[in-house]
Design a protein around this nucleic acid. Structure first.
Lengths: 139, 139
DNA sequence: ATATAACTGTTATAATATAACATAACAGTG
DNA sequence: CACTGTTATGTTATATTATAACAGTTATAT
């Protein structure tokens, strides 16, 4: 049997998609990524979705469900339970890790006898950059 | 100008969709609802999405973004900021309102200078019913 | 009554995602 | 080495979800 791929060594296609997402300033949709990687030999959606699903499994990226886009996971935290803050204005997505918050969500679930496995929080609003731009315009 | 529709009196098509969602034990997709309401004269997706978007605006339903399905909002709470707990096993969605939780999420946003407007929390796991069934099977 | 905005119907198409099958690369085993 | 099961990749077609654009209708304030 072939050795299971370690996280240190991603498959070529998976690595290409991961790099592309990491190098993008804003989160990317699957077909957007597909276009970007067409020169590298990506042809069909299924190729892209395979790589994306692998990266999701590994926890290296998040999917912003409300926008159908993908964003690299901020590596600085371990428990990949985080708040994704989506800026309506510029489209950027920031990740706010908060372990105690994760505990609280699980606790609320348990109050209702719900055994939670994973969860996602998506915030909509305006990021700090866009807020300061608005303030400057008002001056 | 036509009077703005009050919440007490929904338009016929909107009301039909709302009733259909409320009467469904599990959350429904748009095309699923469309099939159910075909006998009532619904023909095209755009008819359904118009009604769904109206209900979302009014806060009468939620969209479960990770599943692309719609669920009636639990009327018992006002500040429609809630946790949606999706059961992997039976597909049911429960709503856990928690106002203090909402404040906490906003606070985490503000710590990062993010002005949040709205947000959604989706929990994945196993509901109390399915958990007890599993326990019974183990006996 | 009639102008106007809201609602509804209809057709077409865009955007997102997966199924199903074929081929290639690879690692272990006899 | 040749065989075998597994993972990875390529390819085609199709399913699923959502919106655009336009025409026609209904309701209501004036």
């Amino acid at each position: 049997m072939r050795a299971k791929q370690s996280v240190k060594q991603l498959n070529p296609r998976v690595q290409q998609v991961y790099d592309c997402i990491k190098n993008s300033p804003t989160p990317q949709g699957a077909y957007n990524l597909l276009d970007k990687l067409r020169p590298e030999g990506f042809r069909a959606p299924s190729q892209m979705y395979r790589a994306l699903n692998r990266l999701l499994e590994l926890g290296l990226i998040h999917k912003v469900e409300s926008l159908n886009v993908f964003v690299a996971c901020d590596q600085s935290h371990q428990s990949c339970v985080s708040i994704l803050a989506v800026c309506d204005s510029c489209g950027s997505v920031e990740e706010f890790p908060s372990p105690e918050f994760a505990d609280q969500v699980k606790a609320i679930g348990l109050e209702h006898s719900f055994e939670s496995r994973e969860f996602a929080v998506e915030l909509k609003g305006r990021c700090s950059d866009c807020t300061s731009i608005v303030h400057e315009l008002k001056e």
